[in-house]
């Protein structure tokens, strides 16, 4: 019998998600035993045209990482959707929009102008911007178009499953892929990771505040915190309560607070809104003015609460 086919693709991505696949180590052999990788631009040289030639639904499962910002990425996502029976959004960018989604706070023209016209190192007297179609003498060059906003994969195509993380824990990549290959299909929309919040497995949970304790919000550079104690108990922002577990508390182990890359917990849409509730409940005052003061000491709420999820949040949604 012919082996089922797997495809991997990257959209607007840093390459870190690709690395997370390589970190599968022995599990990759298990996968290769069960399936054939037919498309993976970074590792094997099947071309876009080869995918175009495949039959609809010919690919058993496609793993797509990266968010969608360019024409080419949208095209490839659509193509792989048609050719695949199952599509998995791989990593925070595909899952939630990811860190590049913060660009949705700005207009696309402003992004281009900043990089190509305004930064102090650039010399561009004619104000040239990269062009999508261009004639250079007799030569025609084409460059992928830049969209208005960053979108997550499910804002562009239908997605069956999700693997969270920036980058994801390899364990869940193999779990997701093997569940498809071994025909143990989970309900559509399943997120392959812990069900519970990060706090539930955090080594600092013992000191996590149960009542109001916060009198001010402290930033990373202002003091030397206790490396054993819950960050929230030390007046610092840690997204643990509103973030899905599964990363093995990567940042916490390095004595840094969580910034939420695994996205919201089960059944929550808006990670920032959720964290906001958690934080509000431990602010230790009833005085209107003091509340105001504490709230004002928290700067760049969007960059902290929605660092990886802005495009899929209620307000930061992307449009083409």
């Amino acid at each position: 019998m012919e082996k089922p086919k797997i495809a991997l693709y990257w959209c607007s991505s840093c390459g870190g998600c690709e690395e997370s696949v390589l970190d599968l180590a022995e599990d990759i052999l298990k996968i290769i035993e069960l399936a054939e990788i037919v498309f993976w631009p970074v590792a094997i040289d099947t071309k876009y045209q080869d995918v175009e030639k495949m039959g609809d639904g010919e690919i058993a499962v496609s793993l797509i990482n990266g968010s969608i910002r360019m024409d080419e990425q949208e095209y490839m996502a659509g193509l792989l959707r048609r050719k695949s029976r199952i599509v998995i959004a791989h990593g925070s960018c595909a899952h939630l929009g990811g860190v590049y989604g913060l660009a949705n706070l700005y207009r696309s023209e402003d992004c281009l102008n900043r990089a190509y016209k305004e930064v102090p190192s650039v010399r561009n007297p004619k104000g040239i911007l990269p062009k999508v179609k261009l004639r250079e003498g007799e030569v025609e060059l084409e460059l992928s178009g830049f969209h208005k906003a960053v979108r997550s994969l499910n804002q562009v195509i239908e997605v069956d499953y999700y693997i969270p993380g920036c980058p994801p824990n390899p364990k869940y990549i193999s779990e997701a892929v093997l569940s498809v290959l071994q025909n143990r299909l989970l309900p559509k929309g399943n997120v392959f990771s812990e069900r519970r919040a990060l706090c539930s497995t955090c080594s600092r949970i013992g000191t996590k505040p149960e009542r109001a304790v916060i009198k001010e919000i402290k930033r990373l550079h202002v003091w030397d915190w206790d490396p054993e104690k819950c960050f929230l108990a030390q007046d610092m922002i840690c997204l643990g309560p509103a973030t899905r577990g599964g990363c093995m508390e990567r940042c916490i182990k390095a004595n840094m607070p969580c910034r939420g890359c695994y996205g919201p917990t089960e059944n929550v849409i808006d990670q920032g809104g959720k964290f906001l509730s958690a934080l509000a409940s431990i602010i230790d005052t009833r005085d209107e003015e003091e509340i105001e003061k504490i709230a004002n000491s928290l700067l760049d709420i969007v960059g902290l609460f929605y660092r990886y999820s802005l495009p899929t949040s209620l307000l930061g949604g992307g449009t083409k």
């Binding site: 910002r69 360019m70 706070l105 700005y106 696309s108 992004c111 900043r114 990089a115």
Partner: peptide, 9 residues
């Protein structure tokens, strides 16, 4: 062929 806009965001 790609641009992300770090300088802005």
């Amino acid at each position: 062929p790609e641009f992300k806009g770090f300088e802005k965001f």
